[in-house]
Design a binder for these strands. Structure first.
Lengths: 321, 321
DNA sequence: GGATGATATAAATGATACTTATAGTATCCG
DNA sequence: CGGATACTATAAGTATCATTTATATCATCC
């Protein structure tokens, strides 16, 4: 955690600063706040001393703002207005629940988890939003506090201040149209007659697959790519190509298993892990509990079907925790 | 402005509260903060007294959070982390400019203003973003502080705490394919052979046109609609229909004026006004200056061409201020 | 070039954050 | 169960910081 250096101001100082901005004069601000003029003058001088910069241009009247003062007005105004909303929000929370929880769910778990997760969150919060999509978009939303947690691949490995709960690890596998014989060796892969249906490079899964194939020196023509597991699975089911995907993506695709064939991916182990990521400490025990819930639902609803369809997975698809 | 009731806490109290949350114990928090245990105990009791709610459940150890406490942790954590970013941001502003300015520009001014506005803002801020689109989306971004100001129709008439600067008022006009004779009376409108090309009801312009035509008892079949002035203008230029639009939308459409014909809209006066809207007091004199800039660019770059193409406008298209 | 209305500084005062000291309470463990 | 341990609450004193009164200095307007 960052060094606990003291904050250079408190909310009271910002309140006084904003009053001066709006009145254009310290004396005016003092009248409005029910203080004396020197109190305001000293509060402003103290604030400037603490941040080490002048915020007012005292050579003109009405008082002008310096560059730093302009920015401070913008930021302080936002901060105070948020602070004012906190106490009312707390009072509305007497039901013992959060007022709002916002979750991001990677596409490949949308079918498996969106509804149960939404239902579970609804028992914890007054208002719930579950957004499915690419984890990249969710990651930036999480960092900018427009989202409370996300479930997806970990694209934030280098970011401090987050906590992670591993949910499930799964190997990449091959998905082929029903009649096609699966390649057994890496070399068979290089000679596939069918084109490769790809995940878009906008998704981390797409990037990982791309990199793995490059490492294996498997070069396949670029023909069709999709953002979503459904697009990939449906295209394979239609016989248009084969894909490197994962068991959960196949489940997400909701495709008729009679029309496709799943097979191990030849070559060295290649897997991915889905994780729940939240800002550390902000939601207390909640992220851990939500992760537990997700694991139990995956174990109960999804794993049995996938193990039945791909018995050769033999535990390489496993719930963490 | 809202009644200036005092804030029920300052940042120091929240800092202590969060330390207790993370340590799970007041004594632990005291050690971490370099305080004594009673100091923390009293700060917490004081905080609870001010907001009128208990935040900790003292009957269990490690200390549990109440419902309100859970929400407070979430909000306080966000507030403190934003507060910590302020001072560094101020120090980066020694160039005399804002670190970031985010503008929303209504589609109908995108061609006329996006580039010059962007250039002008770049002289004021380190980083600038100018987003074009429907004002409805910009309005919500403005309110949620994801945008600093917007230029468009005023869809926020009932919202407090905003300041407005009128830029330009323009009448709605008819746009027809070159060869078509313009309707002169309202009744001619009702008998147009060509279909009406509409602005989507997602845009305020579209809604206003729709309402005006309903008031005039002009009912025209629904065939083609667009979100953007380009779509409307290009469709009219292709001879596919006629449109009720405005001079600035026509300019935005960037259509060859030889292929279309502009004419007054029969019936009572019907106009719209474009406005610059910002959160009050946050950017100081900046909104007024930006509005001045926008007016001068419109007067210099756009008005002469439109007056030449539609001499019958005769001052009904006018810059405000 | 004063008159006026503002800001800055100094010293005194009041509020409140913090400390020491002590009493009360939860949890652990034999 | 009972005592050891570690925590929290309360009381009273102290230190610190915000605010006041009093006074000096500065900007702006005729």
């Amino acid at each position: 955690m960052a060094a606990r250096e003291a904050l250079p101001f408190d909310l009271r100082a910002l309140e006084i600063f904003l009053a001066v901005c709006e009145e254009g004069a310290m004396a005016g601000a003092a009248r409005r706040l029910g203080l004396t003029q020197p109190a305001v003058s000293q509060a402003v001088a103290d604030l400037e001393g603490r941040i080490g910069l002048a915020v007012f241009d005292r050579s003109v009247r009405p008082l002008g703002l310096t560059a730093a003062g302009g920015v401070l007005r913008q930021k302080a105004s936002a901060l105070i207005s948020e602070a004012r909303q906190i106490a009312p929000a707390l009072r509305e929370t007497e039901h013992g629940r959060f007022p709002l929880l916002r979750a991001g769910l990677v596409d490949s778990l949308a079918r498996a988890l969106a509804a149960p997760l939404g239902g579970y969150l609804a028992t914890l919060a007054e208002e719930v939003s579950v957004l499915s999509g690419l984890t990249a978009a969710h990651a930036s939303a999480l960092l900018s506090r427009q989202m409370d947690f996300l479930v997806g691949l970990d694209e934030l490995e280098d970011v401090e201040g987050l906590e992670r709960f591993a949910l499930v690890t799964e190997p990449y596998v091959l998905l082929l149209p029903a009649g096609v014989a699966p390649p057994v060796r890496v070399d068979d892969l290089r000679q596939m007659a069918l084109p490769l249906v790809r995940f878009s490079a906008r998704s981390k899964t797409g990037i990982e697959v791309e990199r793995h194939l490059r490492r294996l020196k498997v070069e396949l023509p670029r023909r069709l790519e999709f953002d979503t597991p459904q697009g990939v699975a449906a295209t394979v089911a239609a016989g248009e190509g084969f894909a490197v995907t994962t068991p959960l993506c196949i489940h997400e695709g909701a495709v008729d298993l009679a029309r496709v064939r799943c097979a191990p991916l030849p070559g060295p182990a290649f897997q991915r892990r889905l994780t729940l990521i939240a800002r550390r400490q902000e939601l207390g025990r909640l992220p851990r509990e939500i992760a537990d819930f997700c694991r139990s639902r995956l174990a109960a609803d999804v794993l049995p079907a996938l193990d039945a369809a791909m018995p050769w997975l033999a535990g390489t698809l496993r719930i963490e925790g």
